[in-house]
Computed example of a mutant assay.
Amino acid sequence: MKNIVTSPLANLWGVMLLGIVFLAATAHAATEAPVRVKDLGKLQGWRENALVGYGVVTGLAGTGDAPTNRSTKQALANVFSQFNMTIAPEQVQSRNVAVVMVTAALPTFAREGDTVDVTVTSAGDARSLVGGTLLLTPLKAPNGRIYALAQGPLSVGGYRYDANGNVVQKNHPTVGAIPAGATVEVGTDANMVDARQNITFVLSEPDYTTANRVANAINAQLGAALAEARDASGIQINIPEAQRGHAVRFFSRVENVTVEPDRRAKVVINERTGTVVTGGDVRLAKVAISHGDLKISIVTDHTASQPMFVGYGYNPGVRTAIVTNSRVDVEERNSPAFVAATNNTVADLVQALAQMKTNTRDIISILRAVKAAGALHAELVVQ
């Protein structure tokens, strides 16, 4: 009986090549399909506002905070005081209650009566929030003003049950959510226009070439010199006097302007999944690649040692023994893989290596070496 173990660094020519998801653009950056301006960024002032609150979850089946938790006692006593019930915190004894932190994000444009999702997290030593209900909780912004009120039953995507020292748990039962659980009490309205009747469009990925193209596209498609690129991320746009009473209509026209963005050469490698992704037409300089192969095998033989005269009563202590013999075999190929890349793309290189049955780990190592040699004209990102 033989067991063969191969080193993970070996090039397994007899095993199916690990899958590589290789996504490459076949056209040059200049022939990229036009995209809308709104897909490249957003107007300055478009942002969400963080809200946070401190509340109490009730209705837990003995999985709440411990009776010795002073913050829970005080919080529950405060709740009772709102209903003209005076109870000292020391008299509160319950494991069906938990103190929690409540968070939400207020949209850029919110009206009174709108609802937003909230996230509830345990702030004490509760074991689980399953089955709990959040009591009315005010949500405040960093300026201390209350903008929303949250309340409702929790939706927890997990559980925890324990008995006699045995614990069964799935996901995080101390975190829950309430879809549309907060009602906006104070609306918000973002101011996109400055004192000079200008708006600023901000690119998600700053790039001087793309910013210049966006400004030129807006001027060409709107028929006036309205836009100017101020830096790599900001394009200042002046609102025409005739459009200032119809700002929404003008914003819509700007968002739907089409432009051909410039793509920065980038190669992304994910070692965990064996994925190689390249953006744009990433090319290679003249480079020669030689990659050897080393195979290490550990062979184990199991044999039975059968002594003479077993069973005849001459020596009751004599037994059959299993003897294990192992040996290490190292095999190195004399003809290493050789690839000559002359003004090719990364896609061409990966396809050539795949045809030579090079595994994923070796392809990633080769791309790193090519980058170190200065032949890969792109940013190499390893995840």
Score class of each variant (00 low, 15 high):
24 A>Y: 06
9 L>H: 13
343 N>G: 13
366 I>A: 06
308 M>D: 15
123 A>R: 05
318 V>Q: 14
54 Y>N: 12
12 L>I: 12
230 R>P: 09
160 R>I: 08
337 A>Y: 13
204 S>L: 03
280 G>D: 08
111 R>E: 13
270 N>Y: 02
5 V>G: 05
160 R>N: 09
4 I>R: 06
286 K>L: 14
153 P>F: 03
165 G>R: 02
320 T>P: 09
127 R>Y: 02
242 A>T: 12
308 M>S: 15
351 Q>Y: 11
226 L>F: 07
190 A>K: 05
262 D>F: 14
356 M>V: 08
275 T>N: 08
301 D>R: 09
102 V>H: 07
248 V>Y: 11
192 M>W: 12
81 S>L: 10
67 P>G: 04
191 N>V: 14
12 L>Y: 10
250 F>E: 08
369 A>L: 10
308 M>P: 11
95 R>C: 11
336 P>H: 01
305 S>M: 04
227 A>E: 07
200 T>Q: 13
80 F>I: 04
281 D>H: 10
193 V>L: 03
295 K>T: 11
4 I>M: 07
145 R>I: 14
326 S>G: 03
371 K>C: 06
80 F>V: 07
228 E>Q: 13
172 H>I: 10
256 N>R: 09
56 V>T: 13
380 L>G: 01
112 E>G: 11
222 L>K: 01
306 Q>P: 00
180 A>V: 00
58 T>G: 01
3 N>L: 06
254 V>P: 09
288 A>G: 12
224 A>T: 03
368 R>L: 06
86 T>E: 14
322 I>Y: 11
381 V>G: 09
119 T>G: 03
278 T>N: 02
74 Q>W: 11
39 D>I: 08
207 D>F: 01
326 S>L: 01
372 A>I: 09
138 P>M: 04
331 E>P: 00
149 L>P: 06
194 D>R: 05
241 E>W: 02
251 F>M: 07
217 A>L: 08
17 L>F: 10
344 N>P: 00
209 T>Y: 10
28 H>C: 15
304 A>H: 00
246 H>L: 09
258 T>I: 05
225 A>C: 08
254 V>H: 04
48 E>M: 03
52 V>R: 14
14 G>Y: 12
191 N>T: 14
221 Q>E: 04
196 R>H: 14
257 V>W: 10
158 G>C: 00
291 H>L: 14
23 L>A: 14
210 T>H: 08
231 D>I: 05
379 E>L: 03
367 L>W: 02
64 G>N: 02
378 A>V: 07
106 L>W: 03
11 N>A: 14
358 T>M: 15
107 P>V: 00
51 L>H: 02
192 M>E: 07
335 S>I: 10
129 L>P: 02
295 K>N: 12
82 Q>K: 12
229 A>T: 07
356 M>S: 10
181 G>H: 03
113 G>W: 03
117 D>Y: 02
159 Y>F: 13
225 A>N: 15
143 N>F: 04
277 V>T: 13
16 M>D: 15
324 T>Y: 04
37 V>W: 07
109 F>I: 11
235 I>F: 07
224 A>K: 06
87 I>L: 10
